[in-house]
Design a protein around this nucleic acid. Sequence first.
DNA 1: TAGTCGTGGCG
DNA 2: TCGCCAAGACT
Length: 337
Amino acid sequence: MIDKTFRPKSTPLNPLEFSATVTNWQRQYGRNDLPWQINITPYRVLVSELMLQQTQVATVIPYFERWLQHFPTIEDLATASEDAVMAQWQGLGYYSRARNLHKAARYVVDEFAGQLPDNVDELREVPGVGPYTAGAISAFAFNKPAAIVDGNVKRLFSRYFGIEGEISSAKTNKTIWSLAEQYTPVTDSRRYAQALLDLGATVCTPRAPSCQECPLQESCNAYATDRVQILPTKKMKSKIPTRSGNFLLDLTSDGVVLVQRSADGIWPRLWCLPETDEPPKNATIHGKFKHVFSHYKLDATVFAQSIPNGATRVHLDEIESYGLPTPIRKYLNTLPT
DNA sequence: TAGTCGTGGCG
DNA sequence: TCGCCAAGACT
């Protein structure tokens, strides 16, 4: 009788075998035509990596193309206004990344004459560049050996090496970084880094991974021990709270009143309908909308309310040149022109 | 260590 | 409809 649950005993490949296996796989099955993989420059890699933080490739692509049209060089970005920068980032989310990218451009122009450094230590000093992004820029922009650990690598390594520790813990993070450094090859750095990301994104996926397509199946600990569905282990998440918000709509033939939000909190420095702590009395409800953030849900009510004076009023057809949060832009788009 | 910070797609 | 998750950084 055949035991369908049989798995071969697994021993991890050594670093040389591992890197050869995944780079060969990447050459044949990986992603090699993404916009930032063509005409590679350090600036294009920097832009793509900041945009790709916690954001999927398909979402980033149109933003990346538009960004390079508006800010072709790092000098163009460094000298651009914050309003112009935020207008281009509008809708992509995590807006501190846009300000960091802007700061990064100025930093590199001021400190390095516009030339990004190629080593992790100096890259870590660039605004918005953390441990992952520093390694990614070194590998992708300069083809230099550098460990990268992102969500893909954490998932891939936790399964491949059978790491049981909670994936977001400092201890597990340290373990995986150590393995990542140990397994980083001396040559073909760019393709190796891309191989890890491609494997994680297209084969070793969070759920329903395609183990039959995986070049590492034979030596994968999680596959051998039938723990692919269990690893990586995650902490229980308490469900996110719901908050209510009150927004004011003052729309005339001259446009709608917008205010620039503070640098703190959600949607920092983006242009928005005026928000109030308490619902205005004797105001009629114009409409409602809901929005989900990563850490809370917003239940919003929009009140028709005239704003006294001195406010910025923007014509509806000029709104695209302002940086607006997505749900506000969507709400305004429903208004009759 | 844990919270903050967006948005869209997917099952 | 809802929870999960994505090329994380910063505080």
